[in-house]
Simulated assay, not measured.
Amino acid sequence: LASSWARSTGGRALALRYHNVYGPGMPQNTPYAGVASLFRSALERGEAPRVFEDGRQRRDFVHVADVASANLAALEHTADAPAALFRAFNVGSGVVHSIGDMAGALSRAADGPDPVTTGEYRLGDVRHITASSERLRTELGWMPAVTFADGMRAFATAPLRAAVRR
């Protein structure tokens, strides 16, 4: 839709595909915010994070501050971009970690219980979800600034917000 709009109006549109975003202010106890929210909520209750399957599912976790800077880079890019431009970009850290890595890092940083690998699974979950952010780096000059280790340490005790009930 954005591509069609840009072509037909001479406008400019960039699509940002965010990978596993985490950071302060995430909603509590909701699978819709991703596994980071579930692990962090469990730790806040004093419970061990429950890791599904074998914990080796691969993801690219990206801090919300890096997502914000990617948004700014995209906005700045559109100011000088040629007319009728549409371009899609993946927004990730560029470093792959497992779900188990995240659970362990959060547990250690929060001085919480060790994660429990349950072997459970959810129908429809994808085993590995990673993508390259190279286009964003080369075309927009964007670079993530928050490392996985630093991000997990900060997120382990960052405030969460109550999930919206509908």
Rank of each mutant, 00 (worst) to 15 (best):
A2I: 07
S3D: 14
T9N: 08
G10D: 00
A13I: 06
A15E: 14
A15Y: 10
Y18A: 11
H19F: 15
N20M: 13
N20P: 03
G25C: 03
G25T: 04
M26S: 14
M26Q: 15
M26E: 14
N29Y: 07
P31L: 04
Y32W: 12
A33H: 05
A33I: 02
A33C: 03
G34Y: 06
A36C: 11
L38Q: 12
F39L: 08
S41H: 07
A42W: 08
L43D: 09
L43S: 11
E44M: 14
R45N: 13
G46Q: 04
E47Y: 10
A48T: 06
F52I: 09
E53C: 10
D54G: 10
Q57H: 01
D60Q: 09
F61A: 06
V62K: 00
H63M: 07
V64Y: 01
A68L: 12
N71Y: 12
N71I: 11
L72D: 07
A73P: 06
H77F: 14
A83G: 04
A83N: 02
A84M: 10
A84Y: 11
L85R: 15
F86Y: 11
N90P: 00
S93Y: 02
G94I: 00
V96R: 14
H97T: 07
S98K: 10
I99L: 15
G100M: 12
G100S: 14
D101W: 08
A103G: 10
D111F: 11
P113T: 01
R127M: 02
S132R: 02
R137H: 10
R137M: 12
L140N: 02
W142Y: 01
W142I: 00
T147V: 02
F155R: 13
A156D: 03
A158L: 06
P159F: 06
L160E: 09
L160N: 05
